[in-house]
């Protein structure tokens, strides 16, 4: 019995198979754990360790380096408001303060009903729509307090769920099959290409 659901376990194994070394799948696998559990759970860490041939300590040590991985449970919707330079100049700090008041939770914390977690983020690379706001890493482009409030109401009522899926940045990413080129084919092609290049160099003198 794995901790990951059957479908996620299968996706996890497919991801591992895409890389020359299993450990390379660490970040995508942690995204999958977050997709299922909403955060990087201890059980998920154990399973990623097993899948990548590492230890739970290794996995936790890696996960803790990256901002997107939550090592504690968070709300169903993680709202990020950017206050970095472009957003600062467009009122990002004010919008973050408004978001905190509107949601009723301090920056970095979760609402009592477990619906929202509010984060102050660094630049999210959407500075043409500053201040930048994301919900579960979907850009919602609500740059004014009024637009923010309307968005929150819609999210609360579940009316944005088609465009704002639950946790997991890979929720809608599906690879159409695994690697198509076996290592032996690559080795043979490389040898042939090397020989062809040597011939061309020889012909060119």
């Amino acid at each position: 019995m794995t901790h990951l659901r059957v479908d996620l376990r299968q996706r996890a194994e497919e991801l591992v198979a895409l890389y020359p070394r299993p450990r390379s799948a660490m970040l995508p696998l942690l995204h999958l754990v977050q997709e299922q559990d909403g955060y990087v759970s201890p059980e998920g860490i154990d399973e990623v360790a097993e899948l990548t041939g590492t230890t739970p300590a290794d996995v936790r040590g890696t996960a803790s380096f990256y901002d997107m991985f939550h090592l504690e449970p968070v709300g169903r919707y993680v709202v990020g408001v950017c206050t970095n330079i472009a957003c600062l100049l467009a009122g990002g700090e004010e919008l973050l303060a408004h978001a905190s008041e509107r949601l009723g939770c301090a920056v970095g914390s979760t609402t009592d009903d477990g619906l929202f977690t509010l984060e102050e983020t660094e630049c999210l690379a959407d500075c043409g729509h500053a201040p930048c706001v994301t919900v579960n890493h979907r850009y919602v482009r609500t740059t004014t307090p009024e637009a923010f409030d309307a968005m929150v109401d819609e999210v609360r009522q579940g009316r944005r769920d088609h465009e704002i899926p639950d946790h997991g940045t890979l929720v809608r990413v599906r690879r159409n099959g695994g690697l198509r080129v076996p290592d032996e084919v690559i080795a043979a092609e490389r040898a042939a290409a090397k020989a062809a290049r040597a011939r061309r160099l020889e012909e060119a003198g």
């Binding site: 390379s24 970040l27 995204h31 990256y66 901002d67 997107m68 890979l170 690697l179 198509r180 092609e189």
Partner: peptide, 28 residues
Amino acid sequence: YDHGALGRDVFGSGFSLDVVVHPGAGAY
């Protein structure tokens, strides 16, 4: 891949290539 521009024997050229997209996780 479906178009033959990736994978084994790209457009019948004898050149093969696999491309994997890898997600980061929030670290400048």
